[in-house]
Every structure is written in structure tokens, then in C-alpha cells.
Nucleic acid binder design. Structure first.
Lengths: 349, 349
DNA sequence: GTGAAAGCGCTAACAG
DNA sequence: CTGTTAGCGCTTTCAC
């Protein structure tokens, strides 16, 4: 009743286990031999055991993708891209989630030594020396989809957040907005830090000053709502003549001090959008809104969200390719790929 | 340079491999022995090989969750619930995607015989005899999150779509809507079929007739937009006096023959929402809209979507529990669990 | 309580 | 081209 082994197949076919293995792996054999083996395999419903095989050959033909939050739509884009590349190369992709805690990420990387997979693509929210060390010491190739210091010497594929921020600011300025606010995620995360710096730089380049800036607790919708409320609180302040001009509207929609907001990702942007609506503010009439990631959510929300495309699909693809290349040749020097952003303009601006 | 094995640890500690194994697995040993082993393990950075271990003990302590489309937010709810249960039980969860093709699902189930994991939770979009057969014959326990005929004799946890539909219709009727349309997904899928039947039954119970009904090509946002256009086309037909009353609106927003739509899932609902907006129709003013799944998207979209909660979190939880129970005891008779729906009322109605 | 040794299912030399 | 056999890294009898 238990699964048939290669020995059972060999017995049934009246040949040696080695021959069965050869036929199954496409090595030279006479047609008659191949036929007998195939027949026995079919009859018994034999399926080779991947564990035994990988124990022997030292490879699992599985690759792991580790993401922090499956609820973040940016990862579905990335996941699809990775899946496509690795499955074309004959690997199975398995996805695991790490959660936001850095210790979980370290544990995951360390755990790769157990031989679950032949390689790992990890997109960490937070990076510290422990994590870098675990990646450097990892027994299987790891590529990081995110930003890690160059001196760490690990393969990375990262977005260009500052450039993305510049695109967003430029776009808003070209639309006549000057009073720009910023809803960031936690500044102690890799993307949070990069975007804060990018935002500051981009404003400086346009000789503008940030009107308001808040850090959400997380890169989630709920945090976006909460952060949105904080932002509205901070930006409270009415531009008198404009209010007068809109008196016919009736509602007491006090306009905030900002006329545009950039959010550090789409989930935050959408959370903020709800708070703006709740405050009686029109997007883009009163406040223009731009998100980042250009995830599926950006076109699903209403109004559709102008969003900085940080190349998540391309990052996924390149990361997967890098991983495959590294598996082929463990000696090649570490590569750092930067993917360039573009802007997907939609109705929120 | 290669990974240390248990033999290396034994050598370093000056003990036998058996003793190392025992200490690592918490079996009785003198404190001195344990200490020597632990020291050697730390020094060498030894991590046991999961493949070798599982080859020997016949278990991997991994569980697989297979979903059709990672882009569908209903799966993130389910995934989180499954993850919580299985990790509490000491298992690793890995997620794989099957794609919409039934042959891929069959291949996945068959592939489980390779020993990737100790069990599988699968949520298939389409079910046929091949798939059922592959599940019945699978060497590892499988639980289906979805509907499979009782006679198949497999563990299942399913939603009660008809009941959910009844809740939706009842709610719309209580809001004074009588002209209800239906945007279904593909009718050759398990949920598509169940929801079509549920919708027909629910209307009959209220002595109503469907005003319009279309089948989208898929359970996706894009398909929802396309299906939405078809629905508007089908429901074209203007109620004269109402149009007159709204002439002040200016726009040529011809009201459709329906005043409410139920969509077979949230993604379809949101796609439709965009088409309604494009046609100048207000939700819920002109058309009330209810989705199904009550996924995160339902609260993220605008206006927030009234949605039938088909218990995806509970289904995930129960499916995981069933799987664990089945792994414990392969002989217990198959269970079929039905999770009851509820309605999350939001502003779209 | 500890060590020696068999063996999980498979692949890859090596002989023939 | 095919069969015999060692051994991947681990756990688990079985003796001691």
C-alpha cells in the first residue's frame, strides 16, 4: 500500500535499478529497455521521491521566494515575474512569508541550510548586520530584492526610489501643485528610509519645502488610514479665499495646507484616499495623490491612482535570473542591479 | 567549505553520530554529553539537513497550500489563517500557485507523491473526475477548500454560496431594490456554478426575476470590467420618468434596467464599479453593489463594498486543522465542513 | 547512557 | 548498453 520505490519498478520490469534510473533521466538505453521500464512505471504508478533524489544529487530543483506580507499587492506582481522565470528554467517556486520581524527573516535565511531549496529570493523590509551576515554565510545562493550596502557583497536587485520620488514630484509640479505632503512608511525600513531621502532631495531640486510629513506604522492599508488622519491633522489650516470660493459646496471641508500628497506605497495611498474622502476632500480636485509600486491596487482603486512604477515585475524577473546565474556559477562576482522607475499617470492627479 | 554533517559534529565532540542525533532531538543523555555536542554544533555552525532527515523519518514537516491565483485577495485571508494554524503545530507552510488550468492542479496533486510535503490544502477553481481521482490516490493527505461531491470521500471545507447569495438578495430587497442583476464568473468553475444556482434560488424565494446576468471570463478585475460593460449593454433601457427627474444632472447617464448588482467575487465587483462610474452611474445611488468574499479589497475600494463574507479565514483555519488531524490519523472518515456566511454591509448599498 | 551499523530511495561510478 | 554497488546525511534499532 506504500509508495512503490525504484526497486519495485526494477523488479516488475525485470531490470536493474540503475537502468530504471537511467531511463527515467533520459540517459541512453535500448528502446526495448525503455519500454519495459515505462510500462512498469505506469503499472505501479511510480513517482520518484524528490527527497531521496535531492539527497543524492545535492539539488532540490526548488527555489524559494520570501516576502514580508502577502497582503501587499506589490508582491503579487513580483511573485508572478519570479514564477515565470524559474519555472521556465525547470524549477518549482515555493513562496513563504517572513512577517515584519527581522529575526524571522534571519531565521528563514539560516534555515535554508537545511536544504529546502537551491536558492532564495528575499525581499526584506528591514535589514541589519545579522541579516546581511546570515545571507553571506548562507549555504545556498541568495539574492536580495531590495537595498543592501554594496560592501556586503551580495547579489541585489533594487529599485531607484529617489529617482521615483523625483518623477512623482516633477509630475505634481507640472500639474501646478506646490504644497506637497508626504505619507511615508516606517523610516526604520529599507524602503521607508530610501523614500524619505528621495522625497527630501526631490523637493530641494524644485526649491520646495515639505508642507507636512508623517510616518505610518506600517506599509498597510490600515496604517495608511491612521497616517492619513495624522496628516490631515497636521495639515489643518485653511486658505481663506479658496474656502470662500467654494462656499457653495456647503460642506465644511476645510482645505488642508497641502494640495498634493505622495504616499510611500499604494496601500498607504489608498488608506489615505479614504480619509481624504471622509474629510470631504476631492481627489484630485482638492488634493492630488500619487502612490508608489504601481501595483494592481492602483488601477483597482477609485479614482485610479497615479503611481510610481518601481519596476516590481522587472525586479522579480532580474532577481530570478540573477539567482539562476548564481546557481550555475557560484564564483561570479556579486551583481547589483538597479531597475529604473517610470510613472503611471492615472486620475488621482 | 561545504556544510558540516552530523559526522563532523560527532568527530569534533568526540562522540558517536548517534549521540549527536539524540541530543539534537532531545532524547535522554547525560548533561556532559549534551554540553559537548552543543558546543561542537555551535563551533561548526551545524544545521541538520532536512532532506536526509525526512528521507529517514518519512516526514518533511512542511505543508503546502495551493491556490489558483495569488492576485485574488480572498487567498491572502485564507493564507494567513492557514499559516497561523500550521505554524502553531510546528509545520512550515509553503505556498504554490497552480494557475487556472485543471491539468496543472492534477499535476500538482500527483507531484505531492514526490514527497515535497506532508500534506496539501488545495483550493481548486475547477474540479473534474481526474482531479478527484488524483486526490483520492494521493500519497499524502489532501484537504480541499472548496466543493467536491460527497461521494468522492475527501476532506473538504466549503462555503455556503447559496446561503450567501440569499443574504445578499435579502439585503438588497430590504433596501428597496427589486431589479437585481448578476455578474458571475465562469460557470464552469466550482464557485461560478454554486453562485449561479444560489442566485436563481434566492431570487425565486423573493419572487423576483433576474434583470440581467452575465458571465465574466475569469474571477479577475479585468474580467470584471469587461463583464461590467456587457452587463451595462444588456441592461440598457431607460426608465423615462426617472431620467426626466435627473435631467439637471446634465450627463447622459441612461439608467440601466437594474438597480442592484451582485458580483460573484470582490474583484469582479470592483471591476464593475469602475464601469458604472465610467457610465456616469452612482453607487449606491443608481446601482447598489454587493460583492462576495469580503476580502481586504472590499474595504479598500471606494465606496467600500458591501460583501458576503464566505468565511475565507475560517475556511482556511478549519482546512488546516482538518489536514493536521488527517496527518495524525489517516483512518478517520472523511469530514465535510460547511462554513456559514455573513454579510458585511458597507457603503456600496 | 552510549556506540556500531543498517537503511530510508535514489544516482553515479565502475565493471562487464 | 546494462548491472552491481557505494554512499548522499540522517535516525533508529540493537548490543553493550
Amino acid at each position: 500500500m506504500s509508495r512503490p520505490t525504484i526497486a519495485a519498478v526494477a523488479r516488475a520490469a525485470g531490470v536493474s535499478v540503475a537502468s530504471v534510473s537511467r531511463v527515467l533521466n533520459g540517459l541512453p538505453a535500448t528502446e526495448e529497455m525503455a519500454e519495459r521500464v515505462r510500462r512498469a512505471v505506469d503499472e505501479l504508478g511510480y513517482v520518484p521521491d524528490a527527497r531521496a533524489r535531492s539527497l543524492k544529487v545535492g539539488r532540490t530543483f526548488q527555489l524559494t521566494l520570501a516576502v514580508a506580507d502577502v497582503g501587499n499587492p506589490v508582491y503579487v506582481t513580483m511573485m508572478r515575474a519570479v514564477e515565470e522565470v524559474v519555472s521556465a528554467a525547470g524549477y518549482r517556486l515555493v513562496v513563504t512569508t517572513t512577517g515584519p520581524e527581522i529575526v524571522d527573516e534571519v531565521a528563514l535565511v539560516r534555515g535554508m541550510a537545511r536544504g529546502y531549496a537551491d536558492g532564495l529570493v528575499i525581499s526584506p523590509l528591514r535589514v541589519d548586520d545579522d541579516l546581511i551576515k546570515s545571507i553571506q554565510e548562507c549555504d545556498v545562493p541568495v539574492v536580495v530584492a531590495g537595498n543592501v550596502p554594496a560592501k556586503a557583497g551580495v547579489d541585489t536587485v533594487r529599485a531607484n526610489s529617489p529617482k521615483g520620488m523625483a518623477l512623482a514630484v516633477e509630475h505634481l509640479v507640472s500639474r501646478g501643485r506646490r504644497r506637497i505632503a508626504f505619507l511615508n512608511g516606517p523610516a526604520d525600513t529599507v524602503p521607508g528610509e530610501a523614500r524619505a531621502k528621495g522625497f527630501a532631495d526631490a523637493l530641494r531640486a524644485h526649491k520646495l519645502q515639505a508642507v507636512a510629513q508623517v510616518e505610518a506604522e506600517d506599509f498597510t492599508f490600515a496604517a495608511g488610514r491612521e497616517g492619513g488622519r495624522a496628516l490631515l491633522e497636521l495639515g489643518r489650516g485653511t486658505v481663506a479665499h479658496e474656502v470662500a470660493a467654494r462656499a457653495d459646496r456647503g460642506a465644511a471641508a476645510a482645505r488642508p495646507a497641502f494640495d498634493a500628497v505622495i504616499a510611500a506605497n499604494d496601500l498607504l495611498a489608498v488608506g489615505l484616499m479614504h480619509e481624504l474622502a471622509a474629510a470631504g476632500l476631492d481627489v484630485p480636485g482638492d488634493v492630488a495623490l500619487v502612490g508608489m509600486d504601481d501595483s494592481e491596487l492602483a488601477e483597482q482603486c477609485f479614482p485610479p491612482l497615479t503611481s510610481v512604477n518601481l519596476g516590481s515585475a522587472e525586479r522579480g524577473r532580474r532577481a530570478a535570473e540573477l539567482l539562476l546565474a548564481r546557481i550555475e556559477d557560484g564564483e561570479r562576482s556579486p551583481k547589483r542591479i538597479i531597475v529604473h522607475p517610470s510613472l503611471s499617470v492615472r486620475r488621482s492627479t
